[in-house]
Design a protein around this nucleic acid. Sequence first.
DNA 1: CATAGCGTTCGACTATAGCGAACATGCTGG
DNA 2: CCAGCATGTTCGCTATAGTCGAACGCTATG
Lengths: 268, 268
Amino acid sequence: MQSVNRALLLVNKAAGAAPDGLSLNQAAEALGVAKSTAFNLLKTLVAHGFLREERPGPRYFLGMSLMRLGDLVGQQLPVAEISRPLLRELTVATGLTARVAVVDDGCPVFLERVDGPGMVRFHTPLGCREAPHASAAGKAILATYDERRVREICQAEGLVAHTRSTITDVEALLADLERTREQGFAIDDEEEAEGVFCVGAAFLDHQNRCLGALSVTGIRAEVPAWRVLHIGQLVREYADRLTREMRGQSAELPPQSLGAHSRRGDGR
Amino acid sequence: MQSVNRALLLVNKAAGAAPDGLSLNQAAEALGVAKSTAFNLLKTLVAHGFLREERPGPRYFLGMSLMRLGDLVGQQLPVAEISRPLLRELTVATGLTARVAVVDDGCPVFLERVDGPGMVRFHTPLGCREAPHASAAGKAILATYDERRVREICQAEGLVAHTRSTITDVEALLADLERTREQGFAIDDEEEAEGVFCVGAAFLDHQNRCLGALSVTGIRAEVPAWRVLHIGQLVREYADRLTREMRGQSAELPPQSLGAHSRRGDGR
DNA sequence: CATAGCGTTCGACTATAGCGAACATGCTGG
DNA sequence: CCAGCATGTTCGCTATAGTCGAACGCTATG
């Protein structure tokens, strides 16, 4: 499946090549193929709207089809649709950027975001994976797993340090997860990026397996110590609401009170 | 480029196959190829995250990469980023769903949307093309072109009727466009969908060529006759603001007052 | 327990995608 | 204004890589 591989790689290249786009020669060189080969690939991708050809001196950018398809991903996952109004409320209530992620192999993948009102914008593309051990959403997810599974994931992903505060030791991480379970929400205190503070909480499916997490993100200064508890409880509360609403739609289970702190899932 | 073609077709199939996803056999049949061929294609797409494989009984859905890439499209087009706060304001001011489209071969392609507060949700996927003759955004765009180009586009697209009110006659369309130019905004009065009312206005680049259009959408009942003028002027005003802000960023041209009704471009 | 339907693997054949060289085009600098 | 270069585009040959079909294993169902 060589040609398909190359085509898809090209799309990724075009994604990285902002804001000037990709030229034919760049494409050919990036793939290590002849110019004519890259030429054909590019034309095919353009024909399907996966790339956009901007003249003159053809430069290639991501195409409109990707936007349409990207939008559809969210619609295939019911989570995004349902969580949107909750994110909006959460943003208003906290003044922070609120996001929702689904879990993919233990990592949070962010589906949807509602930016806060502040000056600061965070570089948080939709659809991106974040590290499980260094993000509030990730730790909220891990906290629903049992120790064995957490160790597996840590092994697979590796506890790479993003900042000085990143937890790089498995035992320390397990302790942090225990605290997360106790208080009902996870905290990322500059563990993913310097100066950035996040709070996250997991939501569950009808079998109490973790589906994903809500989180709010702000700069450290926006979140003084005395606000943390309040924000944490708010995020927890909204995550529970999301759990209930997801159940309400996909299965007709009764809203069965979740209990304030009953997310002690077994992770499988 | 047969295999790439087939792969990209599969992605589109998977997009349409909501909410149950695509099975191997469906995929093979849809393409008219052997099962093993479809199998390889699917696996390759999954490896790149363009599709997601859900077990058991492997079903294929759109993958997370598409979401990430779709999000990036917007970032490569400066329009989406800049228009977002304007859309938000416009939604608040009108109580309607506000959207922004860029022009692609005369058709509006919608980049970004901010839903209104009402109960009604519109089925308006991002990245989708709409008919130029039957949407407010489309007519706002066409109104910036000269007669020859409008006729060309009509020829190419065909004036298909979506509802009883759709304009299917070129002369009538040209008259409507003239009115649009006079009042500064375009109106779609149930021409695209029954019961749906839209108002749109074009925004321009630094050479006064049409870049795209803003529009607001509501159900007919939300937009009584006496509100139309006010809403129209509002949309016109925001489109002009967008024009100015786009110029402010990409080129350092002075904000040069646009004049209330100076969008009489020549369309090329 | 049998069977039908699906996903998955394998090897052979041939169409197809890849290469390289030649041709076109559009800019830059002399 | 022309020459030269860099870039995009086309074409034919060749071998590779993608396609097919058939065989296998699994699960789900009557």
